[in-house]
Simulated scan of single mutants.
Amino acid sequence: MNTNTQQGTVTFKKPNASLSAEKVEEAVYATVAVRTVDKMPVTLDKKSPSFTQSVPTIAVSWVVLLVIVGLHIYFTSVISENNNKLNEEILNLTTRNQELETRNQELETQKQELEKRNQEHEKRNQELEKERNNLTEKIQNIQTEWNELNITRTQWSIDSYCPKKSNPRQCKACEEGWLIEQSSCYVIFDAQPPGQRNWEGAREDCRGKISDLAVVVNEQEKKYIIEHSWGSSGDKGYWIGLRAEDGRWKWVDGRNLTESSWIQQPAINGQCVISVENRGWKSASCSDRNRWICKKAALSV
């Protein structure tokens, strides 16, 4: 752009498109200022035609300048506001991204914990399966042993109740060595002192013979037990299945003694009952060593 004035010529090149807005505004401002200076007459005579013509031009230039400045302020404000919004959005997105990353880490941790628990459960299931297999095997072994024992007991029972002394065999209601009275079988262990036992030991021996210490149910049986308490006297007799529990005399089958006349001594814990020949029943310390009488049901033949 060329401008010819009375003072000289000022040349302005077209601004580069890549220049910033501020530089463009400076160039425009300089152009307007030069134009204003160039158009001002040397003379200050307001009546001259050149002065009258230059006033509108100056006013237009100032208006243009004000518009440019206003636009600059406006766009600067808009750009600043947009930048603030963008920065706020970026901050929000950054915060949201951090929250998502944190949540993702928490989920990953939970996933690892679940995988660990699943592994532990799988291991425990394997252990339980192994234990179940072992128990199944043990049960099968026990069942086999039980069957074999039943066969052995059956054969023992046959040999005991039906001895091979005659052909064919002749079966009895009680096995050999046992005495029968009514529907029961009795065995009288009249062991000498070295072989005598306390009450618990005597009961254990009876149980080993598939019986228990004698339980008396009526007066007739009581008389039978006393009569068969062979060789006993004084404080030495035969253990029967009666002992003191919680201040009461109780049989080994769980029944309480209902005939209080059968024994006169009070039921004191730690005391058991012995049968003495021709004397009746007496209480004695369960730890004493005595003979004993076992009883079981007779076989129906």
Rank of each mutant, 00 (worst) to 15 (best):
G70N: 10
G70T: 04
G70H: 04
L71R: 00
L71G: 07
H72T: 10
H72F: 06
H72K: 08
H72N: 03
I73K: 03
I73V: 09
Y74G: 09
Y74M: 02
Y74C: 06
Y74T: 06
F75W: 13
F75G: 06
F75R: 06
T76L: 01
T76F: 05
T76N: 06
T76D: 02
T76G: 06
S77Q: 08
V78R: 15
I79L: 13
I79G: 08
I79R: 11
I79D: 06
S80T: 13
S80F: 12
S80P: 06
S80Y: 13
E81N: 13
E81L: 14
N82C: 12
N82L: 15
N82W: 14
N82S: 07
N82D: 13
N82G: 14
N83G: 07
N83V: 12
N84R: 15
N84V: 13
N84G: 01
K85A: 11
K85E: 12
K85R: 15
L86K: 11
L86G: 09
L86F: 04
N87A: 14
N87T: 12
E88R: 03
E88A: 07
E88P: 01
E88G: 03
E89W: 01
E89Q: 08
E89S: 05
E89L: 13
E89V: 06
E89G: 09
I90P: 03
I90S: 01
L91P: 02
L91Q: 15
L91S: 08
L91C: 03
N92P: 01
N92H: 00
L93A: 13
L93K: 14
T94M: 00
T94F: 03
T94N: 00
T94I: 12
T95M: 03
T95Y: 14
T95P: 03
R96K: 11
R96V: 00
R96I: 01
R96W: 09
R96G: 04
R96F: 07
N97H: 10
Q98S: 11
Q98Y: 04
E99W: 08
L100T: 06
L100Q: 05
L100D: 01
L100K: 05
E101P: 05
E101L: 12
E101G: 12
E101H: 07
E101W: 00
T102S: 15
T102P: 10
T102K: 14
R103W: 07
R103D: 12
R103F: 05
R103L: 08
